[in-house]
Design a protein around this nucleic acid. Structure first.
Lengths: 336, 336
DNA sequence: CGAGATATTGACATCGTTGTCAAGTACGTC
DNA sequence: GACGTACTTGACAACGATGTCAATATCTCG
């Protein structure tokens, strides 16, 4: 067996030559265009098969209008189930329209994000979906007018008008607050992520508004923000429990923080009540009460919006808000 | 503000015209090639900025050799944490080399997988990483010789020689079996996924060999294979517990099945011991003993192998085996 | 049998960029 | 002042496909 390791790919010209027809006829035959004599078609097909010909999508795209069948997604690390659930929803929807998904991880770094967006735009993606890390998206405004649809996920665009799919953060957090209040809790801790990020601000606001409406102020000493990872959350919750008068309930504002809290509470004899924002695998087994929302729907809806723009839809920017629902599983119903 | 919604992107020719230089000079200037007069460079840059010019990567790729900066990954649904952890590892590694990742979900369907591979190859990906669903990969053999490196993840290639990154399935399963035997268990159930899939076969074989070596045969009535989803696993485990002489321990052979088992065991008063293959989030909180392995390392190593091939490495197909380690967290140490 | 319609084929330009090669300009040196 | 060298620039072809248009070949019908 000859070991021709790296063989150049045959071009259509070579296929045509082998079949004894012109380049254009070979093109027509392989694209199954009408008006190709059956015998010619067969000859071309055979030639292509025997050479192992495969169409060069790059050349085709250039000729057809310099725009690819790719849609880009810039998000955080796919190892985070939130991002991967969203990505999964996007991919599923795109596939129905013959589009492929390119993903890139911004590592929560605004500069990296920008350069990834650049890379995607150079690759002429048909649309760009972003779960932005940076705050300022104004640099995208020029692009938005250049025919590349943008869709923002989870975080609203700032500095430009663009489609967005958001979660009802304030509503979800309010329901968590109200749920705990209804359970008789007053000293309710809130452990939140970076307050500069819009979703977190929404959740903080929603929770605070629930407290305000009820006239409760006992929660105030227990607000912890800018808790950014699992370890930090675990430490924060431990510290809360060590206070002279510890909180009787805790609200964590995303899946990572909930994980940290669960670790901290693992061996606590009389753990405080816990409600977490974002549902997660095995929350049912753990009996963790959460504010759930449909993550794959976020991706699906975003992909749908993008596809509509790709298909020519024009019109003002739209915002879809995904609703939340509180799922009581026990941890949020522990009494004071 | 004029609302020119879909404006054609300016080309390099237009930039050159505006700057009053030739096409080639504009190209040189924007690519920061040497020997461009500083004043010319500035003029071109200004022209590009004012037009909002962005290089057309498709045209560049065509000219430079008709191969993209993309690497394709065909896997199962990213909503499964195993796949997303692997994808995350791949993406991280690729980024270091300026490569982007395109992902596609084969939905565990061999035909779909094949057409996705086709789509990727047409797009001239530089390498193709596959967590294959189908059994027969012979159709890829031709491609492998055509300069597109393939790397198989989690499942070995069948019908062609290609790089692969595998998990030590047999070893991991054997250690699970031995661990349970050492704990005094004899009636050990194994709940396995589709036996036709190589990783599952490896895990079954490893477990069985551990049993054989110990001379134990009491496990035999408790083998359950072809359990393919969470619900099915939950049902299977419930059924096992209802047997006249139920097993005293259970070994589940992947993360989904472990989830199902945990659901089934949730309210059981004296649950059997449980060891699961694949580590998972919150296994520590749940106290679940698992056979762990580094999922992101699987992706990282696969991307590394692919990158070496892209960079010109030739030579026989390599196989990397990722080792496993049993992490005792309580569930596997419950006594008989 | 000839005119007109239709089916089949091919030559050539083109998409937007970069590589090649050659021409023009400026500069320092003897 | 002539000349070699280095720098700067541009004309043109090329990547591999498809669209346009025109040229044949074949068929239909009176």
């Amino acid at each position: 067996m000859p070991s021709e390791s790296t063989v150049r790919r045959p071009t259509l010209t070579e296929v045509a030559a082998l079949a004894g027809v012109s380049l254009k006829t070979a093109s027509r035959a392989l694209n199954r265009e009408p008006n190709v004599a059956p015998s010619t078609g067969r000859r071309v097909q055979d030639a292509a098969d025997s050479l192992g010909y495969r169409l060069n999508g790059i050349a085709r795209e250039l000729r057809r209008g310099a725009t690819s069948a790719l849609v880009g997604l810039v998000s955080g690390d796919l190892a985070n189930p939130f991002y991967s659930a969203v990505a999964s929803g996007i991919e599923r929807e795109l596939r129905q329209h013959g589009l492929l998904l390119i993903t890139a991880n911004n590592d929560e770094d605004a500069d990296l994000e920008r350069s990834l967006v650049d890379a995607f735009l150079e690759r002429r993606v048909r649309a760009l979906l972003v779960i932005p890390s940076g705050d300022d998206h104004e640099y995208l405004a020029i692009e938005g007018n250049r025919g590349v649809p943008f869709v923002f996920l989870d975080r609203p665009p700032d500095g430009l008008a663009a489609d967005a799919v958001l979660i009802d953060n304030a509503g979800g957090a309010r329901s968590a607050g109200e749920h705990l209040l209804a359970g008789g809790h007053r000293r309710i801790a809130m452990v939140a992520d970076l307050a500069r990020m819009a979703p977190q601000r929404g959740r903080i606001d929603g929770f605070v508004s629930a407290m305000k409406s009820s006239g409760n102020t006992a929660w105030e000493p227990y607000l912890r923000t800018d808790v950014h990872d699992v370890r930090h959350a675990e430490r924060t919750v431990r510290d809360l429990l060590l206070l002279e008068t510890p909180p009787t309930a805790i609200f964590t504002t995303n899946n990572r923080l909930t994980t940290g809290a669960l670790r901290a509470l693992r061996d606590v004899v009389r753990p405080p009540a816990l409600v977490g924002f974002d549902d997660f695998d095995l929350a049912d087994v753990l009996g963790t009460t959460v504010v759930a929302h449909d993550m794959s729907a976020i991706g699906r809806e975003a992909a749908r919006l993008a596809y509509e723009r790709i298909s020519g839809h024009t019109g003002p920017a739209r915002t879809i808000v995904i609703s939340t629902s509180l799922i009581a599983r026990g941890s949020g119903e522990r009494s004071t």
